[in-house]
């Protein structure tokens, strides 16, 4: 068992556990912190997958900016211990049941269906996933979607301001 594989399993366990932690924490601040842990773990996995640029983006935007935003809203509203009564008692069991079914389907696909659709990974060039190559692709072939994304962010910003501002009239 290579070190990479050992590292993957450790990271996978951390990611799953942190996700479960986010799921079950009564305090939403804890949930947020578990999610940060999860994101960071995934960022490390990205590094293992030859995607250093995306890993950086993951850490800075997700684990940094977005989760800070979450924490900021939680603090702002003071709803870290929001009431979690039971309004639909039959919903969680059904949800778990259906989730189990989905997992079974995933398992079937991954381990019992045809295996030769994915190419065997022989050796990966060192240049793969480098910020340079990503940047070239982003600013050449995907220039228009990139610019559209900037517009999207602008719209989101404006929308957030309008939604969140107090009624002035």
């Amino acid at each position: 068992m290579s070190t990479q594989l050992i590292l993957f399993f450790i990271l996978a366990v951390i990611a799953i556990l942190s996700a479960i932690g986010m799921l079950v924490s009564k305090n939403s601040v804890y949930s947020a912190m578990f999610l940060v842990l999860n994101f960071v773990t995934i960022a490390v996995l990205f590094l293992l997958l030859n995607a250093p640029f995306i890993a950086m983006v993951q850490v800075t935007i997700y684990a940094g900016a977005i989760m800070v935003l979450f924490l900021f809203v939680i603090m702002l509203l003071g709803t870290d211990m929001a009431a979690e009564g039971i309004s639909m008692p039959w919903q969680p069991p059904i949800a778990i049941l259906l989730s189990g079914a989905l997992i079974l389907e995933f398992a079937f696909i991954l381990f019992f269906a045809q295996q030769d659709v994915l190419p065997q990974i022989e050796a990966i060039s060192a240049a793969f996933g480098s910020p340079q190559s990503i940047g070239k692709l982003l600013f050449n072939f995907y220039l228009l979607p990139f610019e559209v994304t900037s517009v999207l962010l602008l719209v989101a910003m404006v929308g957030a301001i309008i939604l969140a501002q107090r009624e002035t009239g």
């Binding site: 935003l69 929308g159 301001i161 969140a164």
Partner: peptide, 11 residues
């Protein structure tokens, strides 16, 4: 897109 979605969702 996720960042934008979070911004809108939180607001």
């Amino acid at each position: 897109v996720g960042a934008a979605e979070v911004a809108i969702g939180l607001s």
